[in-house]
Each structure stands twice: as C-alpha cells, then as structure tokens.
Amino acid sequence: MSISTPGGENRPGLVKVGGKPAAGAKPGTKTTTGGTGGKTPPKSGGPRKPITPIKVNQGRNWGPIAMFVAVGVIAVGIIGWGAWAAFKPGGAGYDWETRAGGISGINHVTTELKSNHTYNPEKYEQSPPVGGTHSYVWQQCMGNVYDAPIPNEHAVHSLEHGAVWITYRSDLPADQVAALAAKVEGKEMMLMSPVVNLDKPISLQAWSYQLKVDNASDSRIDDFIGALRVNATQEPGAVCSGGNTATGDKPLTEEQVAALQQQQQG
C-alpha cells in the first residue's frame, strides 16, 4: 500500500533504475568523462524511450499502520471495558433465584402469597404451606428441631423471615430424621418438624418454594437450603430468635400470645 504524491524526480522514497544518463549526456555519444553514460552505447539509435520510474518501498508507511493499530487498540479497550462492566463481581448479589429454579422437581409458587397477620387458623393452598396469611408470632427458627408438629400459621411467619422449614412424615426412619436434624441444629434460619399426613416422606419449604423428596440422602436437600435459606426472605434483616417454641396443631390465640409475651418479659 502506498500513498503517493506527485513528486517528480526529487520525490523521496523513489529511486529510478535503468541507468539514466546524466543530464546532458547524449546516448550514443562517447564522452570523455566516462560518466553514467557508460562505455557501452546503446545499439539502437535514436532517442531512448523514457523509463517509467519504479517505486520501491523504503521501509513501511507507518502512518496508516499506526492509525489502524490505534483504532484497534481503542476498539479492544471498549470491548474490554464493556465485558468487564457486564461480568464484574460486586453489587449484583448472588443469583439464588436461578440456582433455585435449577433444582429438579422444585415447585415455585408464583401466585400472590399474602403476608397479613392473624390469630385465626388459616387454610393454605399448599401442604405444607409456603406462604400466605399467618400468625403475628413466628415459630422460633434458630435451628430448632421440633419433635412434634407445629402450627402452620407460625411456621409460615418463619418462612417470611427467610427460614427454610424441613418437614418429614411421622414414619420417616430415625436415621433419616437424624440426618435431617444435623442440617438444622445450631443453624439459624432453619427449623424442622414432623407433619402427620405428608404426601411424601420429606418436604422442604421456603417462602414460595417447595421441594418434596423421598430420602434424607437426596442431594437436592442441600441445594434447596443453599439456594433459599435467608435468600428467600420477605423481610431482609429479620430474625429467628424469640417467637413461639410450643408445638401443636392450632396457632396461639390472642390470649396465649399475651401469656407467652408475659412469660418472655419475666
């Protein structure tokens, strides 16, 4: 590639080849100076055809190369910056919803789940429930392992706070109950209780999510806890301490809650 300007004989970068005689030297005429004309005169007579100058690149044309390289560097820089902005860690948080959605067999309830408070017993769409109107008081979910059924109305309040509630059918073998309890004990935002007429041996609940499995060794249990514990909260920053620790099948009445609070006040 070459960008040339008309420059005639003096144009730098061009060299003429072909032994043009020095100005004034007539071809075919012997000169005494022994100059460019040489000692061998051309055989043909008459005026010689002018020889077209041949361009020879002396080095490269740096201008255009530099321009293209610069444009390339800028383009790469822009692409790099964009890629970094798109993939940089930080600020976006952990994508727990995608992780939860990828668990085989998980049920995500996308219809509206109410968060109202009540003292009344509630009927729930799902069994065990994964959300909806619930008791004023949450069930304590500081890694509590309850050995008897707990009222749904309290457990749903725990789900709202971000807890994962492990339930199991009352006939689940003791070793499997122990394996589940090991995932719960000492871990806040976890609670566990038996459910009498559960349709599957084990059912896991988080707010708006449910997974039913047959065995405590199912690896999806850890996947469910990992994706949803705390992350599924409807009240970021909420706690699991305090609350109700009693088991039973009916939620605490207004009077019972008052009595519980009296006891908690000492």
């Binding site: 860690p89 930080g90 600020g91 976006a92 948080g93 952990y94 727990w96 992780r99 850890d222 806890i225 990992g226 994706a227 514990r229 705390v230 992350n231 970021p236 920053g237």
Partner: peptide, 19 residues
C-alpha cells in the same frame, strides 16, 4: 453487624449459604 456482614457477601456476589 449481621447486616453489615450480609451486605459484604452481596457485594462480593457470594451466597450467604455455603456447603
């Protein structure tokens, strides 16, 4: 302080839960 530590993990795009 729990709130502060939770926000770190969010800022770092890490899960609050770990195996």
């Amino acid at each position: 302080q729990i709130g502060i530590m939770s926000q770190w993990l969010r800022d770092w795009s890490l899960n609050l839960n770990s195996s």
